[in-house]
Amino acid sequence: MIDVLLKIIVFGAVVGGIWGLVASGFSLIFGVSRILNFAHGAAFVCSAYVAFMLISSGVNVYASILAGLAVSGLLGILVYSLTRPVRKNEVMVIIVTLALALLIQQILLVNFGDRGISIIPLVKGVVELNNLKVTNMRVTSFILAVVSLVSLDLVISKTSIGKRILATSQDSEAAMLIGIDVERIFILVMVLSSILAGFAGILYAQIFAISPETSLRALIYAFAIVILGGLGSLRGSIVSSFIVGYILVVTITFLGARWSEFVMLLAIVTILVVKPTGLFGVEE
């Protein structure tokens, strides 16, 4: 029993940490700019593809990863500029970002094929905890994810830039009145969030593998998590990404792998029915 519990704790934590990076950015973008960024999953896969491409052509691994993250950041700027003219039009924001996400997915599909790519783990080896083998890469990813999430939370709640971000997310017009350059905050949040997603993609590609289809998958996980955590609530998404991670792992352990996706989706829908604002959300 202890074994099973340990397994659930360890595996759930890693999955939760990676999706937390994706979902927190997604939530942050929504909170600040009220943009539901469907292209967020694209940032997740693009960094991994760029890094994979550079590594295969012989570039230094760390430089490749940095380049991948930079591309994700650029994608954030792209989303910002594409949504800027239609920001007031909710329908068009959804449609433009969704189209961008699929455009990128198709470009990857045409150029790399539908089979997955993976990045060789930077940290090798396995640790054994009470008969449970955990790869060091998973441990590293978990630590990196937690460190990133905690620092993100600290930046938002403690620094002056964070305060400006918070002010903008509470009321962007009021923020503008007190002299905050709202547009700069928007760009900053877009870039930062996209880089976080890109970082998650890099970690994911080392533990698992990434295919063009993974971008939609990442997006759906981000959806599920922010719905659970409440739209626009950063801490809500961080907490709920771990909840989603655990739902997934518990389902695999007790019900079988075939149910994993189904149960997660069903759980999300159920939560929406019972508490539509999510765990930490506020009704608008």
Partner: peptide
């Protein structure tokens, strides 16, 4: 009945997940 009570994006998010379910 469940989703349209709420305003904003909830309806879009839920309907996005539905076909997958």
């Amino acid at each position: 009945v469940i989703t349209l009570r709420l305003r904003g994006y909830y309806f879009s998010l839920v309907t996005a997940i539905l076909p997958l379910v």
